[in-house]
């Protein structure tokens, strides 16, 4: 079932000035209920512009956005409702924390939704649990937390709105390897537990490969490729042409395959790679 749909969507910045830019052009895409969709593309390809249409922060220059079959820009009310049904977590969201305590920061989104205090409290605690924020951290100032912790507080704030669709713009950017892993795990866990639809914007191919069901590739403001992880990563040369790449591990396998080793090249993590090589050696690839 389709949750979100972009139809012939275009957006231009600074219309009528010498700096007019077409950021996205005639985009058509659908997002299915419950899926984990990755949107990838070079910097400036239009990813951030596109996703800000999904919760009506931006109004299309042309085209429409449908949420559960209804045009979200049909009325003021529907646009307002989209802010909560589609939760958007911006890039480097920790710079937008501003409340005096972690609790208040997480509660900020839900308290604008007309919920009871008890419901807000329950949501804050659920979101904190998902993101690994301990109870004793809730009364701290967000400014006393580490970078990775602040990031999790900001993510919890969006999760606490319990949106139907959760969109995250580069959620792991700038984190150390352990921090990246933690964030990706918690997003996976959130999706599995709540069954929510999740869209993740990233240009780390390793991250995308480890979490996504499906990938949409933007190039210069248009959809260049879309399909399963396997399908999209099988277009390695085109991805490189578009300023992207395939995971390092996948490149190794593609290279070995070219040299005549009968390996499955749909391998994206070192864990998968290990298993595939062991399989190859056992079935007599000899070593």
């Amino acid at each position: 079932m389709t949750v979100l749909e972009a139809k012939n969507l275009s957006y231009e910045y600074s219309v009528g000035t010498p700096f007019q830019v077409t950021a996205i052009k005639n985009i058509n895409l659908t997002v299915e209920k419950g899926e984990m969709l990755a949107i990838i593309g070079h910097t400036g390809s239009g990813k951030s512009t596109l996703i800000q249409h999904f919760n009506a922060l931006f109004q299309p220059t042309e085209g429409q956005i449908f949420l559960n079959g209804k045009d979200i820009n049909e009325s003021k009310e529907s646009a307002h409702a989209a802010r909560f049904k589609v939760g958007l977590c911006f890039q480097y969201p920790e710079y937008q924390l501003f409340e005096s305590t972690v609790y208040k920061d997480i509660a900020f989104g839900p308290s604008n939704m007309g919920l009871s205090d008890a419901e807000i409290d329950a949501r804050v605690r659920r979101a904190a649990a998902f993101t690994g924020i301990r109870d004793d951290m809730l009364e701290k100032s967000p400014f006393d937390l580490s970078g990775g912790e602040k990031r999790r507080v900001a993510i919890a704030g969006v999760m606490a709105m319990e949106p139907e669709v959760l969109i995250m713009d580069e959620p792991a950017a700038g984190l150390d390897p352990r921090g990246r892993k933690t964030i990706l795990e918690l997003i996976k866990n959130y999706r599995e537990t709540t069954g929510s639809t999740v869209i993740i914007v990233s240009h780390s191919m390793e991250d995308v490969a480890s979490v996504a069901d499906r990938i949409v590739v933007l190039n210069k403001g248009t959809v260049a490729l879309s399909g399963s992880v396997d399908e999209v990563f099988s277009h390695a040369d085109e991805l490189v042409e578009m300023g992207l790449n395939i995971p390092q591990i996948t490149k190794i396998f593609a290279e070995l395959k070219k040299s005549g080793y009968d390996l499955n090249t749909s391998v994206y993590t070192s864990e998968q790679a290990k298993n595939e090589i062991l399989r190859y050696l056992q079935k007599g690839g000899n070593a």
């Binding site: 070192s270 790679a273 290990k274 070593a287």
Partner: peptide, 28 residues
């Protein structure tokens, strides 16, 4: 809180499983 480069990680894992790869592999 860091990790090994991907190629090193893979080589290490394979070595643990008895595949005879040399130490010190860092790049693809």
């Amino acid at each position: 809180g860091l990790e090994l480069p991907e190629s090193a990680k893979l080589a290490n894992e394979l070595r643990k499983n008895g595949v005879e790869l040399p130490e010190g592999i860092l790049t693809p």
